[in-house]
Amino acid sequence: MSAEQILIWGGGIMYEFKYHKASSLDEAQSLKTNTADGIYLAGGQTLIPTFKQRLAAPSDVIDLAGIEELRGISTSGSVLSIGAMTLHAEVAASTEVRDSIPALAVLAGLIGDAQVRNRGTIGGSVANSDPAADYPAAVVTLNSSVITTQRTIVGTEFFQGLFETALTEGELITRLEFTVPDRCAYAKFPNPASRYAVVGVMIAEYSGKIQVGVTGAAGCAFRALALEDALNSDASSAAIDAVHIDVENFNSDMHASAEYRAQLVRVMAKRALAAL
């Protein structure tokens, strides 16, 4: 191997960068355009550890915390809108969320740990597309829209792979819109060490039609169409048991094999179904 391979220590000692606190979306985007290798900072709960491991070396960090329009939760008709910089703790505690999509409040309350929920944001989580993050299950399930500085992206088309999304360079999520379902539930199997989802399953029902979103199991969150078909003909545990879960694209690592993840998809789906 090459001489360049090196192990890095000095925890917390990041590469040097410039820091900017943007006060508007325009300012944030213009900073992004006009810096050599600028990076947006939302809650930082994934990004800062990444900096600390020196896995990223941005020239400039553009903090979005000062942009007022990225915050806030509101409902309008059947749409729940959550600003990108809204904290997990705020979603978990929000009366608006609890009244409209209580399962989303539950999901937010299961992310990471309390301290992380007090800093982490929905926009940051969704934009990161961590395969084991919780919010993506909701984004793909809840007839959602990801509203960005440039356009509206359909929730089911947002996640494109491991840490890959439909976002283009410089594009920023401003808010997420979820269509309020008739019923909804989320069941999570956390990794005992990291507390990320080994598997998370969200089930929602819209006018009698069941939708199932899965996170943790594969490279990014996805809709489990086979489960949906089964549940739409027979909304029962037995129907879930009868479904063949295709593990071809499932993650398999030291924390869980693909086969075990498939089992967890089944069990979490049953739990979510029971909690509907």
Binding site: M1, A3, E4, I6, I8, W9, G10, I13, Y15, E16
Partner: peptide, 26 residues
């Protein structure tokens, strides 16, 4: 993880940055 050298510097930032610049041929 076996240590084979140590960088001593005025700050932790410098020490860490410098450690990355030490090239070891194995």
């Amino acid at each position: 993880g076996e240590p084979l050298g140590v960088v001593i510097a005025e700050s932790l930032q410098i020490a860490r940055d410098a450690a990355e610049q030490v090239l070891v041929d194995y």
